[in-house]
Design a protein around this nucleic acid. Structure first.
Lengths: 207, 207
DNA sequence: TGCGCTCATGTTGCATCCACCATAGATGCA
DNA sequence: TGCATCTATGGTGGATGCAACATGAGCGCA
């Protein structure tokens, strides 16, 4: 792995994990020292992250880690809903081959809820949805979706710290989705996907 | 404008205008000399372009300007259709405020078809659609749409060099869209948007 | 005390330098 | 002649140096 990749991973995972919370100013020099590389690869990493909207670069001042505004949050969820609804429709005629993976992620979520590992739970949630989106077989859309989820994590990392009732509700909804995929109709499944995302909007919006 | 931005603009417009056709290898050194800056900002520009999917960086070898594969082309148009259909639906209840801008772009297209400036025609086409997408008031989606169009230009720049019948057909379709927006129904307009993009898929696919 | 100015410090933006690597063409040997 | 190997060249990846700029602390003056 190149030094540039290392810097990128370091900063990005730091942001996504909440170690570098939104609002903090990071500087190339400090990060470079921290990671053990020179400023050049750090600079490249920050540019990439700026392109992704994770940080905002202020000339001669530094990089500000940004959280999505309430407005952007709404927009992200609307975009998610659009893609997930599309993907749900693509699952018909029924794509039974996706079911094992979905079940695996579901089981994982159930386990993680017990142990209370919120960030891993959220990762499993994401993986579940990515299976559905990827089933649409459109890598352009999959990439856009993945990016939306990255952005969303920053919100969630700040908001949802181990909220059992919400996790329970989420788990129930995912179970329902899988159930509908196995034995429901296309329109039922599409609507459930839509409602699932809309529910998440509410969660992110109310706090 | 910073040297980095200058390099970025230079390379990107070069690719979009077809001056740097897909398949060519560019090197940091040569570009740097050409633009009149050092390799550092050029390198940053290439990294940004790689993130956008415009070039592919091969370690120790150089940067390859890539055209979308037929597969990616299909995917781009599918994503476009998804967004445009959504945006079309967002235009109801009727957003009359978008009409003047749409009409202006339409007139521009008519003029440009006469003068035969294909790339400007294509830019006006894009602007027309961006008005509709932007009317959805979702900057996240607008950005994704804009990116899709950037990618699409690379295809078009290689394919559609001044094809009058196609331009005529395109112009007619845009007129129809505007007409439906003014005095059609929501479902008519949405369907027409969908069909318009599907028509474009055919164009890109058949060559 | 309060205001404006200067300067010290921290940070970026960019140029330059060096080491490593990939590759192609030359070279030597069978 | 044909093949393996060696080497010269061109390219990137990364480190470092330097100038320009933003900012805030400290100081002088009214």
């Amino acid at each position: 792995m190149s030094a540039s990749d290392k810097a990128y991973e370091h900063v990005k995972t730091g942001i996504l994990a909440g170690d570098i919370p939104p609002g903090t100013f990071v500087t190339e020099g400090r990060l470079a020292e921290e990671i053990g590389v020179s400023r050049t690869p750090v600079r490249e990493a920050l540019l990439r992250l700026q392109a992704e909207g994770m940080v905002e670069l202020f000339p001669k001042k530094g990089a500000l880690v940004t959280a999505p505004t309430p407005r952007e949050t709404q927009e992200i969820f609307e975009a998610r809903a659009l893609i997930e609804e599309w993907a749900a429709a693509q699952m018909w005629p029924r794509r039974a081959d996706a079911i094992p993976a979905l079940r695996a992620h579901l089981d994982e979520m159930a386990d993680l809820m017990r142990t209370g590992d919120v960030s891993a739970f959220s990762a499993a949630d994401r993986a579940f949805h990515e299976v559905i989106v990827d089933a649409g077989s459109n890598s352009v859309i999959s990439r856009q979706y993945s990016h939306l989820r990255d952005r969303q994590i920053v919100i969630v990392a700040g908001n949802l710290r181990g909220d059992k009732p919400r996790m329970t509700a989420s788990l129930r909804q995912h179970r329902e989705l899988l159930h509908l995929l196995e034995s429901g109709t296309k329109s039922q499944f599409v609507r459930a996907c839509r409602e699932h995302v809309d529910y998440a909007v509410g969660l992110a919006g109310t706090r």
